[in-house]
Structure formats: structure tokens, C-alpha cells
Design a protein around this nucleic acid. Structure first.
Length: 351
DNA sequence: GTGAATGATTCCAC
DNA sequence: GTGGAATCATTCAC
């Protein structure tokens, strides 16, 4: 109960000469009898403001009207606005400068990179191209897969933009509503432009957090789409017969050391129209499966050994040096290797 | 529909 | 970074 008199005294003191919060027009001639009169006026106004909530609606309306028409009202209002602005700045000033949200930046960057946000640029073509390379150049199928990927990405993009537009519209409507409300209220209580600005930024932050959720879920949707598209296991195609033949020929003719060099892998990849990674995968699988069941692969090994022998014989008949199965080593040099040693070699690299 | 074959991926050790 | 081993996902022959 003793709060009110203290506030009143404090506010009344605002009218004192030389008070930093007091505008020039209120300070001029504040001393003497005129100054006492103005202090009394301000005291009256403040008294009316403090008691206005205890009155009936009609009484309050009448008081409100009287206050609005009071000759000292604009000056007092300015003082209250300035005091409030300074108070708000001192309390909130430090909080205004928030660093940009790192998570939001990451999401924005990703959406931009995937072609979901920003200008439409046939988004996802990079991912589609990557998938095409990963799947080993399935050729004709890829264009259909690309269009499928693009269509799905376009759907995600459309949903994202629709939702974003809704949020932005809602944010603008709400901001306008709140600003109108504050402007209306500013006729009866001191609301500084800074305070309105702060309120707007609070609203924007709230809506921004909702937008972040939208961005998060959009990113997840893109990731799922991308992983499905890029998961080549779902799109596995057997190599053609010729490619398998070339790889097997190399494998069995290098049974002593079935580890093709990078150069050999590149050459094989070129010959088979597959990627170097696919060549590595193929040799990895082949080594394991051969080692696990040599007996099963023996027939195949013999077949390719015979084939190699025939090739060598052909070369020999054309004046070449070799007349037994020859095996180029990893450096591409020819070394003499009896067929019967193939299992011994396999034992060597399997240990 | 089922099982073998096979290309790709993942995890781990070196 | 590379290769081995296990596993997955798909294809293919029956």
C-alpha cells in the first residue's frame, strides 16, 4: 500500500529542474510558482493514472478522455516514454545482439545445396549424377531414376515453400495485429518505438523457431530420399557377361597375386565399362569367395587357365617368347607360371 | 516361392 | 587407405 505514494513521489520528481529524463520544454521555467504549479499538474495526472483501474468503466472512460485532453499530457507522456526506453535498453540491450543460430545456418545451407530453397535449378541433379556413378553407369535406367528423384524432390520443395509461405503469412498477420494493438495501447500507456520493435523481434523469433522445425523435417525428408536414391544395393545390376569374363580372366591369370594395381583396375574398369570401385569390389568378393570354396571354383579356374594357355599359344605361334601359361605380375611384366602351381599361389595369398 | 549367385556396404584390423 | 569378413539387398534360374 505504501508503494503508490513512493511511485508518485518518484514520478513527481521527474518534473524537477535539470532532471536528465526531462525534455527541454518541460524544464524551461520549471522553477518558482509556475514550476510548483506544473509539479502539481503532473502529480494530478499520475494520481489519475494510478487510480483509473479502480474506477467503473464509464468513470474510467471519462477520466481517460480528460487525461488525453490535459494540457500536460503530451509532455508527461514523452517523459514516461523516454524513461521506459532507457530502462528497456539497459535491461534488454545485451540480449538484442544474438549471434546467428548455427543450426539454422546449417539447415539453410543444406536446403540451398539440395535445391529445396533458393532459385529452382533442377535440384538434385548432382545427387542423381553421383548415384549414376555409384551404380556403375546403368545407362538407360538412370534417366528414369533421375526424373523420379527430381519429381520427388520437387514435391518436397513445393510442400516446403507452401508451408513456409503459410508461416510467413501468419507471422506477418500476427505482427501487424500486435503492432496495431500496441499502437492502440500506446494512447493510454507509454510504449516506445523500441519496445514495439522488441516485441516484433520476439514474435519473429518465435515464428523462426517454428520455421526451423519445418526446415529440419524438410532436411530429413531430403536425406531419406537421397539415401534411398543413392543406395545402389537397391539398384544392383549384374555385370554383363563380357565384363565378368574379362574380370575372371584377369583373376585366374593372376591367381598367384590377385591384387590388381590402380593402373590395372583402371584398365579393367575401362574394358568392362564399370567403375574402379566396382572392380575393387569384384576382386574383394572374388578373393573371399574363391578362398572359401576353392574346390567349387576349380573348374572355373581350369577353364580360364586353359583359355589363357590358348591365348599364350596363339601369341607364341606369332613369334612370341612364351609357350606356357604366362602371368603378368602387378607391374604388368610377364612371368612364367606352371598351371599346377595355381592352388599353391592361392594358398600363399590366403594365408 | 525358394535358394544360389552376386554386387554393394559396413565394420574391423593393419 | 586397403583388404578381409560378414552381411545386406537384389537378381536370376528353377
Amino acid at each position: 500500500m505504501d508503494e503508490q505514494p513512493r511511485l508518485m513521489h518518484s514520478h513527481a520528481g521527474v518534473g524537477m529542474t535539470g532532471h536528465p529524463g526531462l525534455p527541454q520544454h518541460m524544464q524551461e521555467g520549471a522553477g518558482g510558482a509556475d514550476g510548483d504549479g506544473r509539479k502539481q499538474d503532473i502529480g494530478d495526472i499520475l494520481q489519475q493514472i494510478m487510480t483509473i483501474t479502480d474506477q467503473s468503466l464509464d468513470e474510467a472512460q471519462a477520466r481517460k478522455h480528460a487525461l488525453n485532453c490535459h494540457r500536460m499530457k503530451p509532455a508527461l507522456f514523452n517523459v514516461l516514454c523516454e524513461i521506459k526506453e532507457k530502462t528497456v535498453l539497459s535491461i534488454r540491450g545485451a540480449q538484442e545482439e544474438e549471434p546467428p543460430d548455427a543450426q539454422l545456418m546449417r539447415l539453410d545451407n543444406m536446403l540451398l545445396a539440395e535445391g529445396v530453397s533458393g532459385p529452382e535449378k533442377g535440384g538434385g541433379s548432382a545427387a542423381a549424377a553421383a548415384a549414376a556413378a555409384a551404380s556403375g553407369g546403368a545407362g538407360a535406367d538412370n534417366s528414369a531414376e533421375h526424373s523420379d528423384y527430381r519429381a520427388k524432390l520437387s514435391q518436397i520443395r513445393q510442400i516446403y515453400h507452401t508451408e513456409l509461405e503459410k508461416y510467413e503469412q501468419a507471422c506477418n498477420e500476427f505482427t501487424t495485429h500486435v503492432m496495431n494493438l500496441l499502437r492502440e495501447q500506446s494512447r493510454t500507456r507509454p510504449i516506445s518505438p523500441k519496445e514495439i520493435e522488441r516485441m516484433v523481434s520476439i514474435i519473429h523469433r518465435k515464428f523462426s523457431s517454428i520455421q526451423m522445425q519445418l526446415k529440419q523435417s524438410t532436411c530429413e525428408a531430403v536425406m531419406i530420399l537421397r539415401s534411398r536414391f543413392l543406395d545402389a544395393r537397391r539398384k544392383r545390376r549384374n555385370f554383363n557377361k563380357q565384363a565378368t569374363e574379362i574380370l575372371n580372366e584377369y583373376f585366374y591369370s593372376h591367381l598367384s597375386n590377385p591384387y590388381p594395381s590402380e593402373e590395372a583396375k583402371e584398365e579393367l574398369a575401362k574394358k568392362c565399362s564399370i567403375t574402379v570401385s566396382q572392380v575393387s569390389n569384384w576382386f574383394g568378393n572374388k578373393r573371399i569367395r574363391y578362398k572359401k570354396n576353392i574346390g567349387k571354383f576349380q573348374e572355373e579356374a581350369n577353364m580360364y587357365a586353359a583359355k589363357t594357355a590358348v591365348n599364350a599359344a596363339n601369341v607364341s605361334s606369332h613369334g612370341s617368347q612364351a609357350n606356357s601359361p604366362s602371368t603378368p605380375n602387378s607391374a604388368g611384366e610377364k612371368i612364367q607360371l606352371p598351371c599346377c602351381l595355381s592352388t599353391c599361389w592361392s594358398f600363399l595369398w590366403s594365408c
